[in-house]
């Protein structure tokens, strides 16, 4: 118990004094996971729309497959990316292993299924009356899509938040393809909140772990708070 109290106090000190190490790790986490979320959104939202409004054979099975991939284990994604970008792998010439870019790729792939699936759910939940009205008013395909997306914007925003949440909280892929490197320059380092917590705990630096954990929670809470504020406006 003493350890926890002491850890929390030290953690608060690290946060209040804006400890440079803790801040660098937090900012790096946000940059990497936010980038992954933006890239995944660019693919997942149009893809989700295409699947939702499209009619093609195997559509139901495809949706089932996507939903199954919600629980894609992070270490499996990590292993897959590791094998692809390791020097002897097919993309080895790009020298991506142990870089932040590798982590962005892994996180993008990790959250792509859940973001696509939630986009489908968001769009299919749009009131049929709106869809019918749009059609009866003679909207073109693009106009139709834009307006339905607009109607579902809060649900899609929530989708983005879920994607970001999963990206920033995963540790398996980050450690496999990132290598948890603490380099002297910000851009070469691959130590993020989750991998740092894992390392610091194993090294017995409990207060550092708690501080990083609190920062991670604050980021997650902040994102959700921002989303709900927008939704209730």
């Amino acid at each position: 118990m003493y350890e926890i109290v002491e850890g929390v106090l030290e953690a608060l000190r690290l946060i209040v004094t804006l400890d440079p190490d803790v801040m660098a790790i937090a900012v790096r986490s946000i940059v990497i996971s936010l980038t992954a979320t933006i890239i995944a959104s660019i693919f997942a939202i149009p893809l989700g729309a295409a699947i939702n409004f499209g009619t093609f054979p195997g559509r139901k099975s495809l949706i089932n497959l996507i939903q199954t991939l919600y629980s894609l284990p992070t270490v499996i994604v990590g292993l897959l990316i590791f094998l692809l970008i390791s020097r002897v792998g097919p993309f080895g010439f790009m020298r991506l292993l142990f870089t932040p870019t590798a982590m962005i790729i892994a996180q993008t792939i990790l959250i792509l299924p859940i973001m696509t699936g939630l986009t489908i759910s968001a769009l299919s939940a749009v009131d049929p009356v709106i869809r019918d009205t749009l059609r009866s008013l003679g909207a073109t395909r693009l106009q139709f899509l834009v307006n339905v997306l607009k109607e579902a914007r809060f649900a899609i925003l929530a989708t983005v938040a879920v994607g970001f949440g999963r990206a920033i909280s995963e540790v398996g892929a980050a450690i496999l393809v990132g290598g948890n490197i603490a380099a002297s320059s910000f851009a070469s380092s691959t130590r993020v909140l989750t991998t740092a917590i894992s390392l610091e705990t194993s090294m017995g630096n409990i207060s550092q772990s708690i501080a990083l954990g609190i920062v991670l929670l604050v980021i997650a809470l902040g994102v959700n708070l921002a989303i709900t504020t927008v939704q209730h406006r």
Binding site: I39, I42, P100, I104, V146, L149, S185, A187
Partner: peptide, 28 residues
């Protein structure tokens, strides 16, 4: 109008993403 706004937003999003990627890989 909304369409244009969407397109502008999409373009802006992609640009931000690219900048971030460059920020991560390029600055090394």
């Amino acid at each position: 109008i909304t369409m244009h706004r969407r397109i502008i937003f999409a373009v802006a999003t992609i640009m931000v993403a690219l900048m971030l990627i460059c920020g991560c890989t390029g600055t090394t």
